[in-house]
Design a binder for these strands. Structure first.
Lengths: 122, 122
DNA sequence: CAGAATCCTATACGATACTG
DNA sequence: CAGTATCGTATAGGATTCTG
């Protein structure tokens, strides 16, 4: 598995900055390239693995699973698996994940506003 | 210069997700590991290059300059250089950068709240 | 269906040395 | 002081194949 290692100066520095700044703490939890999108899709309710995949066609399985796992590790999403064949797995936001809605919306607002800033020529 | 290239599937996908989600648009502008910290320090007023360096000891010159440049390209910070010897360069937030304050604060709030969530044992 | 495993590349990042 | 240049590494991310 190509996961995050805990060695290297890089992670050391990362650690430093986390403690220094709550913003960085947040970035480190939702900063992955696909995490916000996943979270975004989860904001509209629980989704099955395949639904997420279809909702975000650009993401590879690896990335999806990987980020989903990180989000679980960070206690932002919850995975619920029925033990049936074929498998039925749903992902949904935890409390902490729900709380993120505010942040995501703030970011979305800003993103929208910012992109408009460079469009309105008239 | 080790800058961002515009080729590769990766960037293509990145592009896709940007258009799909304003949150991702935002992440792509402030998602760099040092950007939020830089922005954060700039929130308290204009800073000289050396001040930033001192304020964020963990960052290397390369990273600082690089992110500073990206932030300029993204119109989040403004660079103002006096043409004197020794050089006197100041960085400060643009309008768009100031707008980010809300987002950064939302993230900071969440980060603080989230980290507390895992501390309060009593 | 949901996911694990493997292989590979790009690039983000760090360290260090040099310059106007 | 405020940067640039060069080099090396790690890891994030992609493509593909396989499985309970």
């Amino acid at each position: 598995m190509t996961q995050i290692k805990e060695s290297s100066t890089r992670n050391f520095n990362k650690g430093l900055s986390i403690t220094a700044c709550p913003v960085t703490y947040a970035i480190n939890k939702i900063g992955g390239h696909w995490k916000p999108i996943i979270l975004y899709h989860l904001m509209s309710g629980p989704k099955r693995y395949s639904e997420l995949k279809r909702a975000i066609p650009a993401v590879t399985e690896k990335m999806l699973i990987q980020h989903l796992k990180q989000l679980q590790d960070d206690n932002l999403v919850i995975r619920k698996a029925e033990n049936v064949v074929p498998p039925f797995v749903t992902y949904y936001l935890s409390e902490a994940g729900e709380d993120l809605t505010v942040v995501l919306n703030a970011m979305a607002d800003w993103g929208l506003r910012d992109s408009k800033r460079y469009m309105k020529s008239a």
